[in-house]
């Protein structure tokens, strides 16, 4: 219990630091993003004094001292009031984010889980059959594919499977004619559109899981209790899975938790190539259009989700491996 309390305290402290960093980041940068932003907003028509004040509070046009600005900002964050987007003008930042979130979470989340399971199993196999074909093939392929830049894999798949072979649609998350609804036809259509982005993420992330699992498992295979289990004449599958893999999986599990947290923001390049309307693509649009409120809110959300995932992994880890609790 003490362990959980300590971790919770640390989480709150880190959350505060991340929120504060997000506040100071635009203020430390040369030039004034606010003026550029206000000029942008003015193109859409006259800016009402209320909107202007809201943006000033958000971005920090020097009204009042920095302390007042900070307090105002904290209040805005706590009430999830991130202001209005410049690019998609009448829409609020919160609306945009909520619209993009499900696409990323479902598509990237599922792939992350699948990649983790397949990769870890292949890693166990590689370590157990070390030096054989089952080891060298996945290890070398994994090393190579995990060095692939995400966007390049995406571009190649887009080119060959999308344009040349015409197997899969080339952009978007569903057909332009379909309207988002909870019907079998729509879900099928969305899944069909998700194949290429998902495949990209699978190809580029699989290698990391294989290599990570293989390396820790080779270390646990050298432990005395594994030799002891073997000497006892246990079946080799039992030794591999119940003795070695069970202990070796802990670091990979940490990575898995972090990857789940990273789901929210980690697929930016892929979503950009396939114009997939998720969080990453939204962040890309915000950055290219210098839409600072949207950008700040997205960055904060991505950071917070990683922090929360980290926290959950820490707590779980304490239960799975009592040695870390101390």
């Amino acid at each position: 219990m003490k362990y959980v309390l300590r971790k919770t305290g640390l989480l709150l402290l880190t959350l505060w630091a991340a929120v504060t960093l997000n506040f100071f980041l635009p203020r430390m940068m040369p030039g004034s993003p606010t003026d550029a932003a206000l000029a942008r907003l003015a193109q859409n028509g006259p800016v009402s004094p209320a909107t202007r004040a809201a943006i000033e509070a958000q971005l920090g046009v020097p009204t009042g001292n920095i302390w007042d600005q900070y307090m105002q900002y904290l209040q805005n964050v706590l009430t999830l009031d991130f202001g209005v987007s410049y690019t998609f003008f009448p829409q609020s930042v919160a609306q945009l984010v909520l619209g993009a979130l499900p696409w990323t979470i479902v598509m990237v989340g599922l792939v992350t889980i699948i990649a983790f399971i397949i990769g870890t199993l292949l890693g166990v196999l590689a370590a157990w059959r070390r030096g054989t074909f089952l080891d060298t093939l996945p290890t070398l392929t994994g090393t190579f594919t995990s060095a692939f830049p995400y966007f390049w894999t995406a571009l190649l798949l887009l080119f060959f499977a999308g344009y040349v072979l015409r197997w899969f649609p080339t952009s978007g998350a569903y057909s332009p004619r379909a309207a988002p609804e909870l019907s079998l036809a729509f879900v099928g259509d969305a899944a069909y559109h998700a194949v290429l982005p998902a495949l990209t993420i699978l190809i580029t992330s699989l290698g990391g899981w294989i290599l990570g699992m293989r390396n820790t498992m080779i270390n646990t295979l050298g432990e005395d209790y594994v030799t002891f289990a073997e000497a006892n004449g246990l079946r080799s599958r039992t030794v591999a899975l119940r003795y070695a893999a069970r202990n070796a999986i802990l670091p990979n599990l940490t990575g898995f938790g972090l990857a789940l947290g990273g789901v929210v923001g980690g697929s930016l390049l892929v979503e950009r190539v396939f114009s997939y309307p998720g969080v990453g693509y939204l962040l890309y649009n915000a950055v290219t259009n210098q839409d600072f409120p949207l950008m700040q809110a997205l960055f904060l959300m991505i950071t917070v989700s990683v922090l929360l995932a980290n926290f959950i992994v820490d707590i779980l880890y304490g239960f799975l491996d009592p040695r870390t609790r101390r």
Binding site: L13, T14, A17, A18, L21, L25, P26, M29, P33, G262, G265, G266, L268, L269, L283, Y284, V287, Q290, M295, L298, F299, I302, T303, V306, L307, N310
Partner: peptide
């Protein structure tokens, strides 16, 4: 604390936000 903060903040989004500024 500082190092953990840098470790945990997602790299690519931070890079993109910095590059945008």
């Amino acid at each position: 604390f500082v190092v953990n903060l840098f470790l945990v903040i997602p790299g690519l989004p931070l890079m993109i936000v910095l590059a945008a500024y």
